[in-house]
Design a binder for these strands. Structure first.
Lengths: 158, 158
DNA sequence: CGAGTTGATGGGTCACAACCCACTATAGGG
DNA sequence: CCCTATAGTGGGTTGTGACCCATCAACTCG
């Protein structure tokens, strides 16, 4: 039998396409998966990038602070920090004022890596948002930011 | 030590917030998780809703067609159809023209359920998109739809 | 100086999505 | 009438994200 369609077309139900949240979920997941693939090529995960970004943006800080900021499980963060440190992207040092705390800071290698990862993320974004022109992307970004701020009580990882 | 902030604030790194894809991913995931919770209260999963929606929108069809349309694994669909049939939301009948195929159709109960689920999805959407007025939601929906159509080659589940 | 608290860590569990393979039944072409 | 392809099904594996608990070390307060 002749295949009705070269690629399956995946014509999704209007009932779902009508939900912004459905589109949000699908598109967001696609973007996340795509970026995750690129990170995986470098032996990294999404959390690694998030931690690097937090350190680059907010400076050296204790894991404790990263835990609060990123809403990540302390135990999981310990593992991420471990791998990043082993790879030379961050340095860990006991806080002399409070020797329980481990202060984490990005190295130059880490900063360089982050720049690369950002470029990857931008590339994925360009691919995903291809149908939109610069102005539309701006509008989208602004709307998403408003949505994000308006509901900061979401907790939730990533 | 006084807690600097009642709720942890989760002040995320600008490096990430600047990425629309990051926001897309976070917001989309939050919406999906929230809806999934509501479905779970009814003993259902997201795929159940997707299958019901596809059947309601496109009418009775063989599992084979659902597989192509929704890009779901045949084996997984079999399990979903099984549960939906057991709960009385769909009916399965051998296609008389091709007895390999199993034609699936929604029952009245299934249609009623879907209406309920849609209401749940709308409720979640209202909560998530709370910061936006009707006009802005319209704009967002349109942008997301364009993004979605522009990149139909994503495959990928949900 | 205890007693309770906090930060970090290691070692798990649990749920779930995606995927894959083997097997049966049916269809259809040579 | 075989042979191959297709539809559905059952029984898995794998990877991952979130979470949880026990433990150790270090701080703080009484």
């Amino acid at each position: 039998m002749a295949s009705e369609n070269p690629h399956p077309a995946a014509e999704l139900p209007p009932t779902l396409l009508d939900l912004s949240t459905y589109l949000l979920s699908r598109i967001g997941r696609a973007a996340r998966v795509r970026l995750a693939e690129r990170l995986a090529e470098r032996g990294l995960r999404l959390w690694d990038m998030a931690v690097l970004a937090a350190l680059a943006d907010f400076g050296p800080q204790a894991q404790r602070d990263l835990v609060r900021r990123l809403a990540i499980d302390p135990s999981d963060l310990a593992k991420v920090a471990d791998r990043l440190a082993a790879a030379g992207y961050v340095e860990r040092a006991r806080d002399q004022a409070d020797r329980r705390r481990v202060s984490v800071s990005v190295t130059d290698a880490g900063r360089a890596l982050l720049a690369d990862l950002e470029a990857q993320a931008r590339a994925v974004q360009d691919a995903v948002l291809a149908p939109l022109d610069a102005g539309e992307r701006q509008v989208l970004q602004e709307l998403l930011l408003r949505v994000h701020h308006g509901t900061g009580e979401w907790c939730g990882g990533l």
